[in-house]
C-alpha cells in the first residue's frame, strides 16, 4: 500500500524529531497554561500569591521552634536561613511532582475532545511551579541580604542548577503522570514516597550530621556517600546550600552527577510518556 510505505518511511527517521517540533509549535499553549495556572491558583483567596511565601515561612518557623527551642541540639549557624535554602528547592520539587501527577488525569475532558501533544500538560504543571519558586527565591535573596550569608563566587551557576532541577522534576512528572492514567494507586504511593524522601534528604539537617559509616549485617556502609549517590535531591540541595548559604565552590562531581541524573530522568520520562500517550484518549 502506497500510504503505508509513505507513513512508515516518515515514522522511521523522524519520530522524536517530529514530536519535539510539534511540541515547539505548541509552545504558546504551554505558556498560556502556565499563566492560567499561576493566575487561578490563588483566585478568591484574600492573601493570594503571599500564600506561596507564607507556606515555607510557616514551615521554617515550625522547624526552628522544634530544633532551636524544643530540641536545641543544633550546631547550624543561622538555622532559619539554612533551612530555607533547602526547603524552597524541595518545595519546588515536591509541588512539581504532585501537580504533574494529576495533570493528565485532571484534563481528561480536554484530552478526549481536542488533539494536542499531551506532554504539554506535565510540562506546564512543572513550569507553573518553577514560576512560584522563582518568586519565592526573590524573597529568599532578601532574607540572605539581611542575614549576611556568604554568597559563593559560583553563584552565577544558580540558574543552571535550577534548570537541572526542573529537568529532573519534569522527568519524574512525565513518568508518574503516565502511570497515574493507568493506575490511580500512583498518587497514593507517591504521597508516602514523597514524605519519606523529604526526611531522607538533608533539608532540615546537615548531611555531615549523619554518621560517616554505618554497619549493617557486618558490611560497612558509607552513609553520606550513599545518600548523595542514591538521592539526586540530596546532591541538588547540597549545591543550593553551597551557593546560597555556605559560600563554597561546589565540587565539580556534584554538578556532573546531577546533570547526568536529570538527563537520564528526563529522557526516560519522555520516552515513557510518549510511548503511552496515544492511549490517553481512551483511558483517561
Amino acid at each position: 500500500m502506497a500510504i503505508a510505505a509513505k507513513t512508515e518511511r516518515f515514522q522511521q527517521s523522524h519520530t522524536v524529531f517530529v514530536r519535539l517540533r510539534e511540541l515547539f509549535r505548541y509552545r504558546d499553549l504551554i505558556r498560556n497554561l502556565v499563566i492560567s495556572e499561576v493566575k487561578t491558583r490563588y483566585k478568591s483567596s484574600v492573601l493570594g500569591f503571599v500564600w506561596s511565601l507564607l507556606n515555607p515561612l510557616a514551615m521554617m518557623l515550625v522547624f526552628t521552634i522544634v530544633f532551636g527551642v524544643l530540641w536545641p541540639n543544633q550546631t547550624v549557624k543561622n538555622y532559619p536561613i539554612f533551612l530555607l535554602c533547602g526547603l524552597l528547592p524541595w518545595n519546588f520539587f515536591a509541588a512539581s511532582v504532585v501537580s504533574s501527577v494529576n495533570s493528565v488525569v485532571n484534563n481528561g475532558n480536554l484530552i478526549k475532545k481536542v488533539y494536542f501533544p499531551r506532554e504539554v500538560l506535565p510540562i506546564a504543571a512543572v513550569l507553573a511551579q518553577l514560576v512560584n519558586f522563582l518568586l519565592a527565591l526573590v524573597v529568599l535573596f532578601g532574607a540572605l541580604l539581611i542575614f549576611h550569608t556568604d554568597f559563593s563566587p559560583w553563584l552565577w551557576t544558580l540558574p543552571f542548577i535550577i534548570l537541572i532541577q526542573t529537568c529532573f522534576s519534569l522527568g519524574i512528572g512525565l513518568m508518574l503522570s503516565t502511570l497515574q492514567v493507568f493506575y490511580r494507586d500512583t498518587q497514593m504511593v507517591m504521597e508516602v514516597v514523597m514524605l519519606s524522601w523529604f526526611f531522607l534528604t538533608p533539608i532540615f539537617y546537615r548531611a555531615a550530621q549523619l554518621p560517616e559509616t554505618y554497619t549493617i549485617a557486618g558490611v560497612e556502609v558509607p552513609v553520606q556517600r550513599v545518600l548523595y549517590i542514591l538521592n539526586p535531591m540530596a546532591s541538588l540541595i547540597n549545591v543550593y546550600r553551597d551557593l546560597l548559604y555556605s559560600g563554597y565552590r561546589t565540587d565539580i562531581d556534584f554538578y556532573i552527577r546531577t546533570i547526568a541524573t536529570a538527563l537520564v530522568a528526563l529522557s526516560v520520562g519522555y520516552w515513557f510518556f510518549t510511548r503511552y500517550s496515544d492511549r490517553f484518549g481512551e483511558e483517561v
Binding site: 509549535r25 505548541y26 504558546d28 505558556r31 498560556n32 497554561l33 492560567s36 481536542v114
Partner: peptide
C-alpha cells in the same frame, strides 16, 4: 480566547 486558540495550535 488566547488559551483556546493555543489549544488549536495558534500562537499569541
Amino acid at each position: 480566547i488566547y488559551l483556546n486558540g493555543s489549544i488549536y495550535g495558534l500562537n499569541h
